[in-house]
Simulated assay, not measured.
Amino acid sequence: MMLIEERLSRIQEILEAKKSASIDYLAVQLKVSKDTIRRDLIKLEKQEIVKRIHGGAMLANREAMIFNYQERAGKDQVIKERIAKKAAQLIKNNAAVLMDSSTSVEAIIPFLHDKGILAITNSLSHASLLTQIPSSEVRILPGKVHKQQLFIYGAETVDKIRDYFVDYSFLGVFAINADGMFIHTEEEGLVKRQMLLQSKQTIALADHTKLDTTGLFKISSLKELDILITDQEPSSDFLTALEQNHVELILV
């Protein structure tokens, strides 16, 4: 049986690799009860190693997880492009689409040249790229501008999203587990939450490092999600949760 010191060390290793993780995931990985994991996380939080959040934990230095736009754009580009290409194939011609500010969603744009879409976004960079597609119509949401990550947010942004009802909303996932989708900041989370409420179909894009992880702010439960596109099969518990919530899983 693993000693407590070994278990605490293993939890740190998992969080360093995945950036955040749910209690359920940690319990399965360490083969202990969820109550044991909760006690371990309390110890690690007292040592200021981790920060406990809804349903799990993240590294205490949360700022290390929040990349600026250029850093985010360069991460795992090959996987992003595979996921994005599949997402673009789901879009029917002349559809109306809400696109969040994630670089995963941005990767869809090069595959949209023959679609003739109406794209509504809160991202300055997405809007710029979309204007280069002659067949597209582009609308950018109003609000405050985040200067480092180039997205628009705030009450004005959320209110304007309520004016639309579109065919698809595309959301890049920061963290997702059996309890739902999460992100590290409330301002982005509120925008994403409203986007998924204003579409016929919500499609989430997540590479395998985002699965069975958690975040500070809960965007929604899984039942609000229609499709999850990722690059590796999730854990059996997460697969069960997707099936129970009628979320279609697409692997690329």
Rank of each mutant, 00 (worst) to 15 (best):
Q77L: 15
E106R: 15
S101E: 00
I79E: 09
D100Q: 12
S104Y: 06
A107C: 00
D100N: 15
S102F: 04
K80T: 04
T103D: 04
K80N: 02
T103P: 01
I83K: 07
A87C: 04
A95Y: 12
I79R: 01
V97A: 10
A84P: 00
N93H: 11
N93Q: 14
A107F: 02
E81H: 10
A87W: 01
K80F: 01
A95F: 14
V105P: 00
A88H: 02
V105Q: 13
S101C: 12
D100I: 04
N94M: 10
V78N: 05
N94W: 08
E81A: 13
A88K: 10
K86V: 12
L90Y: 13
S101L: 01
A107L: 05
E81F: 09
L90E: 15
N94I: 05
K92E: 09
A107E: 07
E81P: 02
A107I: 06
R82Y: 09
A88Y: 13
K92L: 12
E81K: 09
V97T: 00
A87K: 02
K92I: 11
T103E: 07
Q77K: 15
E106N: 13
A88P: 04
K85H: 06
V97D: 00
K86Q: 11
K80C: 07
A96K: 10
S101I: 03
M99T: 00
D100W: 02
K86F: 07
A96Q: 04
L90I: 15
E81V: 06
N94F: 14
I79A: 13
T103L: 04
E81L: 12
K85S: 10
M99C: 11
K85T: 00
I83R: 04
L90G: 13
L90T: 08
A95Q: 11
S104L: 04
I79V: 15
S102D: 06
E106H: 06
M99Y: 11
I79M: 08
V97Y: 00
A107R: 05
A96G: 03
I83Q: 05
A88M: 14
K80D: 03
N94S: 11
A107N: 06
A87H: 03
Q77V: 15
A84V: 02
A88L: 11
E106V: 15
N93D: 13
E81M: 15
K92T: 02
N93L: 12
A88W: 03
V78T: 09
V78K: 09
K86I: 08
A95R: 12
A88C: 05
S104M: 13
K92F: 12
K86H: 07
I79H: 09
A88G: 13
V105Y: 05
A84H: 11
A84W: 00
V78R: 10
E81R: 07
K85E: 07
E81W: 07
L90F: 15
V78D: 03
A107S: 09
A96W: 04
S101P: 11
